[in-house]
């Protein structure tokens, strides 16, 4: 029996300027899984990921990833994880090629001088195939469209090594086609490789037939469970306000908010 993917106990996190981003967060998710973290803007989704990675310290309580404590054992956690931050955290001033970005996922975990072997290149190219970006290998990364850049970043995670993929809003600013592509690539990768995927997203609808666990956050845990469990009118209203509704269509429950479909990040 392997350790749970994430186990949080009474976790509270605050930013240096005093804002409490997370409080009383307790939940447990078993591994391996394909997990989604959902919640409105500012609900602490990114903060939770950063805390798990040891980039931020808990003010109260603790959180473990695969049994490792986020504070004391963050170097072990960082060996396990491949992380893609929210898109606005990626600098576009550096003239990197698409291949450099994808290879970064592998080279970061290599010792100096971090040279790319033929095997690295092969794996990187293959990862790009999964997100249908293989023709862009030599193209300058900053000149891609937002959705294309997002796909390349997903490929960076696919190309890396480590049991846990963590992606902060990989679907932000992508069209339906890209969303499907990304989600399917992640799902297939999760099945084929026995890895866990943790994905932050605003909209559960395009992925709720694929994910196994859902964590609803609004600075604290609103709900946790399978997509069907959390697709509950009371829960989604707590999360998105009184206009949120649940509709059923061909055996699945979907969440309707006033702005479903429109992406709130662009």
């Amino acid at each position: 029996m392997s350790a749970p993917l994430i186990e949080a106990e009474n976790l509270a996190v605050r930013y240096p300027d005093g804002e409490i981003a997370l409080h009383h967060v307790s939940f447990k998710v078993e591994s391996p899984t394909f997990m989604a973290i959902i919640g409105p803007n500012g609900s602490g989704k990114s903060t939770l990921l950063k805390t798990i990675l040891g980039l931020m310290k808990p003010m109260r309580g603790h959180v473990n990833l695969m049994g490792y404590d986020s504070e004391k054992e963050h170097s072990k956690i960082r060996r396990l994880v491949r992380y893609v931050p929210q898109r606005d955290r990626i600098g576009l001033n550096v003239p990197m090629k698409v291949k450099d970005v994808v290879l970064m996922g592998r080279l970061l975990k290599k010792p100096l001088p971090r040279l790319a072997s033929e095997k690295d290149e092969m794996i990187a190219r293959n990862a790009l195939v999964h997100v249908a970006m293989e023709d862009y290998w030599e193209r300058p990364f900053p000149e891609l469209s937002g959705g294309q850049r997002q796909r390349v970043l997903v490929a960076r995670a696919l190309a890396g090594e480590g049991q846990v993929l963590m992606l902060d809003e990989p679907l932000a600013g992508t069209d339906m086609e890209s969303q499907e592509l990304i989600v399917e690539a992640l799902d297939q990768y999760h099945r084929d490789n026995d890895v866990s995927v943790i994905m932050v997203t605003h909209d559960l609808n395009p992925i709720h037939t694929l994910v196994r666990d859902v964590l609803m956050l609004k600075n604290t845990v609103v709900g946790v469970g399978t997509p069907c469990d959390v697709m509950d009118p009371a829960l989604v209203q707590k999360l998105y306000g009184p206009t949120a509704k649940i509709v059923e269509h061909s055996g699945h429950r979907y969440c309707l908010t006033r702005d479903t479909g429109a992406d709130r990040h662009d």
Binding site: R78, R82, Y83, L108, K109, P113, G160
Partner: peptide, 22 residues
């Protein structure tokens, strides 16, 4: 010469680089 990759990674994605153990 020694650290150009690291400097590039830090410039492009400081958070992600740290999270990968750099």
């Amino acid at each position: 010469i020694l650290f150009n990759k690291e400097f590039i990674y830090v410039s492009v994605d400081m958070e992600g680089s740290t999270a990968h153990g750099l």
